[in-house]
Design a protein around this nucleic acid. Structure first.
Length: 250
DNA sequence: ATAAATGTTAAGAA
DNA sequence: CTTCTTAACATTTA
């Protein structure tokens, strides 16, 4: 459930809860849930993979990590919610997620221009950030939430395949044009992900993620646990060019 | 049925 | 002081 587009879907589905005064808040969260009772939901927003429930003086930050899930106006049976928020307009049940209060204004905490799904997404700023990290691997760069907030492992694999860049390329070795392609495609694919996810057809559109054979040239994909966080990379040695720093360019 | 996975954080080691 | 490694979290799917 975790990549940025999925959080956008949640934000849209929960929109009717805006303006609701919370009459009951409970669950197995290690968090002072009593603070929520009596609060009115002022806004529901997202920043990348963060789902944000804004109240007058603070915000509840929800992160679903790998296994989180939710139900709106219904409950999962046999599972205790991490947090259940209820009121006159309906209820929001959150499971297996990480919760945190944010007491600062959100604009002080979040760089909205880094959110791949945001109207404030700033491609030029992303390109600048990439240029600042010449030795960084491109597979790590796509997962860097300060650059591509909302991009996860699926989007990473699909974007690298589409722009034909090998995951072990370094940013500094890639031509600026290619880095620009990467930034553009990250946003384009994320919105395609959103539409396919809504239509329930996401998996059938995967070209690389979890695939065994390259759909472009037909040779077997490589599967490696690559990068700083050793995440699965599905890639084609033939179709995806590996940009490596030469001695001169360092 | 065992393992691995759409992810992050914190603690400890080097 | 960084930077790297590992574990923890907790659920679904292959």
């Amino acid at each position: 459930m975790p990549e940025g587009p999925s959080i956008v879907i949640l934000t849209e589905k929960a929109a009717h809860l805006r303006g609701m005064r919370i009459t009951a808040a409970d669950g197995n969260a290690r968090l002072d849930t009593s603070r929520l009772v009596g609060q009115t939901i002022r806004a529901l927003r997202s920043w990348g993979k963060h789902f944000l429930i804004e109240f007058d003086d603070f915000t509840l930050r929800v992160h679903f990590l790998l296994f989180g899930s939710y139900r709106i106006d219904e409950r999962r049976d046999g599972v205790t919610p991490r947090l259940s928020l209820r009121g006159r307009k309906g209820e929001l049940n959150l499971y297996a997620c990480s919760l945190r209060y944010i007491d600062e204004p959100l604009d002080d905490v979040y760089d909205w221009s880094a959110d791949i799904m945001s109207a404030h997404w700033d491609a030029a700023a992303a390109r600048r950030k990439l240029a600042q990290h010449p030795t960084m691997l491109v597979c790590d760069a796509l997962l860097d939430q300060d650059v591509f907030s909302g991009v996860g492992n699926i989007i990473k694999n699909e974007v690298l395949f589409r722009v034909r860049v090998h995951p072990l390329s370094t940013l500094g070795a890639m031509p600026a044009r290619k880095r620009a392609d990467l930034v553009r495609e990250a946003q384009v694919y994320s919105f395609q992900f959103l539409e396919w996810k809504k239509a329930g057809t996401l998996k059938r559109h995967w070209l690389a993620h979890t695939k065994q054979i390259c759909p472009r040239c037909g040779i077997p994909f490589r599967l490696g646990k690559l990068g700083r966080t050793k995440r699965r990379s599905f890639y084609c040695e033939q179709c995806q060019k590996r940009y490596v720093a030469t001695k001169e360019s360092k």
